[in-house]
């Protein structure tokens, strides 16, 4: 038996769960209700309303990725450091939220930041002005970061762990100050982890849908919401597929741009 045969079950799985649906999406996107070829669905997308929603999804996902990186990198750095070697508690704490379904976590977040939620009740108890968070873009961003930050920490942590400590020692021996060691040695070596982290955060962030409803109180749509709407409300699978296709192409483009940062594909290749 050839070794490639071992991949058989997964190949079957992939054909059923990825390739076939992808073909369906392309088929629906390029046909009308009667099944005739058309580009109308794609043309319908070029409209300030839908482009505006896409733009909002893109910048919220961008902010989310930047914030996750700013929070996640130092956390991963600390997790991988020697000071931390014997203490796994923090690592478990980062993983812990992922044991729960993200919808449940988002519902919980909703009841915390509501006007009458825990946070505001606490502020009122302290005699402070309550904050209006729920229903804003900020609330959606908060929910995204809350849900996706572990996906940034873990790959960076793995990359830093894999790093040969002697390289750092060598840099120090040669007289590099700590800042220089970080910028010239640690950061470049952890780049594959960063690339994977960005991918794993940006992709779910840009396709987010439920979070915007729960934390944004349905006050604005994200791209994922309008795709969902086409299938569940408007019953327009063709347009919904066209929107999905646009999203897939955008992700593909951004991933190929990102790949240039990591040409040797040292990132664990989450995509």
């Amino acid at each position: 038996m050839k070794r490639s045969a071992f991949a058989g079950p997964y190949v079957v799985w992939m054909i059923l769960s990825t390739v076939a649906p992808l073909l369906f999406v392309v088929y629906f996107a390029l046909t009308d209700r009667s099944g005739a070829f058309t580009l109308e669905n794609l043309a319908k997308f070029v409209d300030p309303i839908y482009l505006g929603v896409l733009w909002r999804s893109l910048y919220l996902a961008f902010y989310c990725t930047v914030i996750c990186l700013l929070i996640g990198y130092p956390a991963a750095y600390f997790l991988a450091s020697k000071d931390f070697a014997r203490n796994q508690a923090l690592y478990v704490l980062i993983l812990l939220p992922m044991w729960m379904n993200f919808l449940l976590r988002t519902y919980a977040m909703m009841s915390v930041i509501e006007d009458t939620g825990m946070l505001n009740n606490f502020l009122k108890w302290l005699g402070l002005q309550p904050m209006e968070i729920i229903g804003t873009e900020g609330a959606v961003l908060l929910g995204m970061v809350y849900n996706f930050v572990p996906f940034m920490v873990l790959p960076i942590h793995t990359a830093l762990k894999k790093m040969n400590v002697r390289l750092i020692e060598a840099a120090e021996d040669l007289g590099a100050p700590p800042a220089q060691v970080f910028y010239r040695v640690v950061l470049p070596l952890s780049l594959p982890g960063i690339v994977t982290g960005i991918t794993m955060v940006f992709m779910p962030a840009v396709t987010t849908f439920a979070i915007s409803r729960l934390l944004g109180s349905g006050n604005f749509f994200l791209f994922g919401d309008i795709i969902e709407r086409q299938f569940l409300e408007s019953n327009d699978w063709n347009f919904g597929s066209a929107l999905s296709m646009v999203m897939a192409v955008l992700i593909l483009i951004s991933m190929s741009l990102l790949n240039r940062v990591d040409p040797k594909k040292e990132g664990s290749g989450a995509y």
Binding site: E114, T116, I134, G135, G216, N219
Partner: peptide, 18 residues
Amino acid sequence: IVKGYLVDETKDKMISGE
């Protein structure tokens, strides 16, 4: 005027005075 556009969540929010 609008606080949000929701369906299933509204009843609980009205109970808590949102």
